[in-house]
């Protein structure tokens, strides 16, 4: 299958105010292919967001190489990365991050404002189609503050997918939702991503979410290790709680 993103020996180091160096990521190797559903689990402060920034072309590594669709991105300008990001990457955030004061439809239109050609000119139609796919076409004109948490995240998913990105990055997509709504939203994200043939990388510390992935990695103290995908809740042998311990136990078992 076509390789979408690959990270080879990637490190990320920041200089602290006292001139000391903090190594956030250490020698990360990761390859994501078209259609993959990958979960990255780990505790807070483990470098998950930094890794997400690198995969999403929002940041550059200190050393190592990142390739996007086979092309190295280390030397691309900020604007070239922004364009590549707009065309190929869709983000789903923990706090939904819908633009306040704009209707659900306007929010879904936003990424299309940065598209070229028919993507821009047909923006309204494309956005409506996408809202329809997440089951919110009837709520198109409603402002985000009038939508429930689940609905807001569905709008965010529609927005992330409206430009048909090759890669969807979801940062704790269910973090602000109750367990049940979270599962519904995750199932939707999984289905829509599969239908679109997009790769999905989910960063989470919720084993229920990680259980939906086909591959799972654990990021701890800047080191990324492949682990077994946690079992879905309800299947024999699976943990019932959605805690870090469950993830840890499962990952530990696989390591």
């Amino acid at each position: 299958m076509e390789e979408l993103v690959s990270l080879t020996a990637v490190t990320r180091t920041v200089r602290l105010p006292d001139d000391a160096e903090l190594h956030i990521l250490k020698g990360i190797d990761l390859a994501v292919h078209a259609g993959d559903h990958t979960a990255i689990i780990g505790r807070s402060g483990g470098g998950k967001s930094t890794l997400l920034n690198l995969i999403g072309l929002l940041d550059l590594p200190s050393t190592g190489e990142i390739r996007f669709l086979g092309e190295p991105v280390n030397h691309l300008s900020n604007n070239a990365r922004a364009r590549l990001r707009g065309e190929s990457v869709g983000f789903v955030f923990q706090q939904f991050n819908l633009l306040p004061g704009r209707s659900a439809l306007d929010n879904v239109i936003t990424p299309l404002l940065y598209a070229k050609g028919s993507g821009f000119w047909r923006r309204r139609e494309l956005a409506m189609e996408m809202l329809d796919r997440v089951g919110l076409s009837a709520r198109a004109d409603v402002l985000p503050n009038m939508l429930s948490g689940g609905e807001q995240q569905r709008v965010a998913i529609a927005r992330a997918l409206v430009r048909k990105p090759r890669l969807i990055l979801a940062d704790e997509p269910t973090g602000a939702l109750d367990v049940e709504t979270g599962q519904t939203v995750m199932a939707l994200l999984d289905t829509v991503a599969t239908e679109s043939g997009s790769a999905l990388i989910t960063i989470t510390h919720d084993s229920n979410v990680a259980a939906l992935a086909r591959a799972c990695y654990r990021l701890e103290a800047g080191v990324l290790t492949a682990v077994d995908v946690p079992l879905r809740p309800g299947t024999p042998g699976a943990e019932t709680s959605a805690s870090d311990e469950a993830v840890g136990a499962s990952a530990g078992a696989g390591a």
Binding site: G56, A82, T110, R159
Partner: peptide, 16 residues
């Protein structure tokens, strides 16, 4: 600031 960040994550260039 947050709104600008969101727009940039969806491909808004710095010129834009």
């Amino acid at each position: 600031v947050r709104e600008i960040g969101i727009r940039r994550s969806f491909g808004a260039t710095s010129q834009r």
